[in-house]
Design a protein around this nucleic acid. Structure first.
Lengths: 110, 110
DNA sequence: GTCAGATATATCGGATACCAATATATCCGG
DNA sequence: CCGGATATATTGGTATCCGATATATCTGAC
């Protein structure tokens, strides 16, 4: 495996991307990331919830409790206007980052 | 910028890739990463040297002091057999990681 | 000639944040 | 009824990143 830090840093980006299409709760986010990446990305739940709290404090996402009788309580998150801006910026810098890694790691073979 | 953790985690991979073609010293590595990525990746030197020490302890690289009269002393690193194995593994998981991010971040628009 | 800036390596300490462990609680299938 | 999945949360140990600081040499400018 590549160093775990890479998976760490990408978590915010993926959460924003997943919330861009629809509201979701924390547990669902972690399962989605795992299944859609076909197991390549696994999410530690004890990192997930603090991360969601930090992203909410930063104003990128907004959570609200959904409590219905005979159902577990869940906190659904939606992406904010600032969150969408951050997502757009992160999409771009993600591509730039991938290009940069390719440049450095491939040129070295020359 | 994407979260700084991403840059962190990639450092090991890039160092191994750069040492694969030829021996280099620490300062040179940091400058190479910066210039070849056209400034997209910048390296904090106070993280670089501890990282090189850790990689040496792990047996991925080997350093030797080069001291010549009328020259600054430098520590040149060469990649080891284990380092090449690690590099091969990291190249593969880097590609897997990029694919996984693409899967998750793009499918979400559907 | 000397001074700034680049080259070159290294350590310390504050701050961040990951992850394992633990806690709590509900739902469902066997 | 009990194990496993669902669902959220906190605590505490650990890692490590980065700014600040230290040391020393070389080069070019003025």
């Amino acid at each position: 495996m590549l160093t775990p830090e890479l998976k760490k840093g990408s978590a915010e980006f993926l959460i924003l991307a997943l919330l861009d299409s629809q509201d979701r709760h924390g547990y669902e986010l972690s399962k989605l990331i795992e299944s859609r990446s076909r197991g390549a990305l696994s999410f530690n739940v004890s990192s997930l919830y603090p991360l969601l709290h930090r992203m909410e404090e930063r104003g990128w996402i907004e959570g609200r409790w959904i409590e219905r009788p005979a159902e577990r309580r869940r906190r659904f998150y939606s992406i904010t206007r600032d969150g969408r801006k951050a997502l757009a910026a992160q999409r771009e810098s993600w591509l730039e980052f991938v290009r940069a890694i390719a440049l450095v790691s491939k040129e070295s073979r020359a």
